[in-house]
Design a protein around this nucleic acid. Structure first.
Length: 467
DNA sequence: TTAGGGTTAG
């Protein structure tokens, strides 16, 4: 790069740094910055610092910060955030106190507040919050950060108190999104839906739901099973948000439609998504097809995923993908496919089979009546079988008349396992879950007997995924 | 540079 083109080159490097994904890319760009003699550029150094900070690489972040010849407010705040991301609230506090007065922006106060929240020190966070109120540096962001701190700590009552104190003049859509997510996290999707209804009712004139709002309320609907309301929200907000729904919203919608058996609608969302589907979306599609008895389609979707990812920015299957895929095979009795996919996990996709994948295989083999093979698999598996793997084996062995030996073997291993874990706790959990399995089994038999069969639509790989 | 969201075996 010639000195003459440097200003343009600098802009390009900056864009690359803010847009890069992987760790290797970051390091390569850091090298490039140094080689180009741009290391003293505060803006570039800060951009790199932010990347390292988010990744929790405090060492390189701190070095970049220390090497800066002059530091502006943005650099200080980026360093505060980096410390916060690594849970170093005390260090963040020291840096904050050291900061020159003119460099202390509202963002500095808010970042420090978030540092304490992340570290679980709500009392100190509250002190910073109150101080920022007095220093008149607070904004709706400070309130939202404090509300979120309480939500993440599970203190919904304290969050609600602040929410009420804010009043409708201060609250924005993020305040609502934060509260909704808080209720959802605490396992109270009904309260999240009530919050959404309140937003729609009271703030109708002033606040508009965003894609985040819709994604959150749709997830809440899925959890309570209120698919009618979820569907209504989807339809009524389609115009509101325009056609460009984002990936997370698409994912939440697909998950809802799959879980209520509307495979068509789920696939419609998938095919009309903006941009290329990410890992979450593929995993949802594979799990959703499997859950609806479309094992073949799930395998086809997986093959599509692998093919598509070769062209566009790599989406590589992960551990979740294979849990979804193998259980899809298991549900549809695809023994051969399941075996093949299990065998290619590590060599072809770089995902080492874990206990959960062995669990899927044990289930697959047991359902196909291959109890002996399942036992053999558990005997030779390189990872320690967990209670779920052994429990699965035990369950199948008990229900198949000839499984006495296998059943005894599994029970013995379970006892060994729990003795090694040194707790009767695990054992009682296991028996509790065994009882739940029995319940599930009874439930399933009843559903089959009543002739409930999901409707059939094939996964169509011809649908264009990318526009 | 500061606040909010998604997938996982029986």
């Amino acid at each position: 790069m010639q000195p003459r083109t440097l200003p343009r080159g600098r802009a390009a490097v900056l864009r690359a740094v803010t847009g890069c994904r992987g760790r290797r890319e970051e390091q390569a760009l850091h090298c490039l910055v140094c080689k180009l003699g741009l290391a003293s550029d505060v803006v570039l150094a800060t951009a790199l610092l932010v990347r390292y900070g988010k990744r929790g690489l405090l060492g390189p972040a701190q070095r970049l910060f220390d090497d800066m010849r002059r530091r502006d407010a943005v650099a200080f705040n980026a360093m505060l955030a980096a410390l916060g991301a690594s849970g170093r609230a005390a260090d963040a506090r020291r840096l904050f106190d050291r900061m020159p007065e003119r460099d202390r922006t509202p963002a500095s106060w808010n970042t420090l507040l978030t540092c304490y929240c992340r570290a679980g020190d709500l009392a100190s966070a509250r002190t910073v919050f109150e101080a920022s109120l007095r220093a008149a540096t607070s904004s709706v962001v400070s309130w939202n950060a404090m509300v979120d701190g309480y939500c993440k700590a599970g203190r919904m009552d304290a969050a609600r108190e602040l929410f009420d104190r804010m009043g409708s003049s201060l609250r924005d859509v993020i305040t609502y999104n934060t509260m909704m997510a808080g209720y959802l996290r605490r396992g109270d999707p009904a309260a999240a839906i009530a919050m959404f209804r309140r937003l729609a009712r009271e703030e109708e004139q002033t606040l508009r739901p965003t894609a985040v709002t819709i994604a959150t309320v749709v997830t809440a609907c899925t959890q309570v099973g209120d698919f009618a309301f979820g569907r209504a929200v989807h339809l009524s907000t389609r115009q509101l948000l325009g056609t460009s729904t984002d990936a997370v919203l698409s994912n939440a919608l697909m998950d809802m439609y799959f879980k209520c058996g509307s495979v068509d609608r789920a696939l419609e969302v998938f095919s009309t998504m903006p941009g290329a589907p990410n890992l979450f979306c593929w995993n949802t599609v594979i799990a959703g097809l499997g859950r609806n008895g479309r094992g073949e389609d799930a395998v086809r979707a997986f093959r599509d995923m692998v093919q598509t990812s070769k062209k566009i920015n790599a989406v590589k299957p992960d551990s979740v993908t294979f849990v979804a895929l193998l259980s899809a095979c298991s549900h549809s009795g695809l023994v051969r496919e399941g075996r093949e996919l299990f065998a290619e996990m590590l060599p072809a996709h770089g995902v080492a089979p874990g206990a959960e994948h062995y669990g899927c295989m044990v289930d697959l083999l047991c359902r196909a009546g291959l109890l002996g093979e399942a036992v053999q698999l558990v005997r030779t598996m390189p990872v320690r079988p967990n209670a779920k793997v052994l429990g699965c084996l035990l369950l199948h062995a008990r229900s198949s008349g000839d499984g006495v030996t296998a059943s005894e073997w599994a029970a013995r291993r379970i006892v060994e396992l729990d003795v090694r874990d040194g707790a009767a706790y695990g054992l009682s959990n296991l028996y509790a879950s065994l009882q739940r399995w029995d319940h599930v089994e009874r439930h399933r038999s009843a559903a089959v007997a009543s002739g409930k069969e999901p409707g059939r639509t094939s996964y169509d790989p011809q649908i264009p995924h990318v526009r």
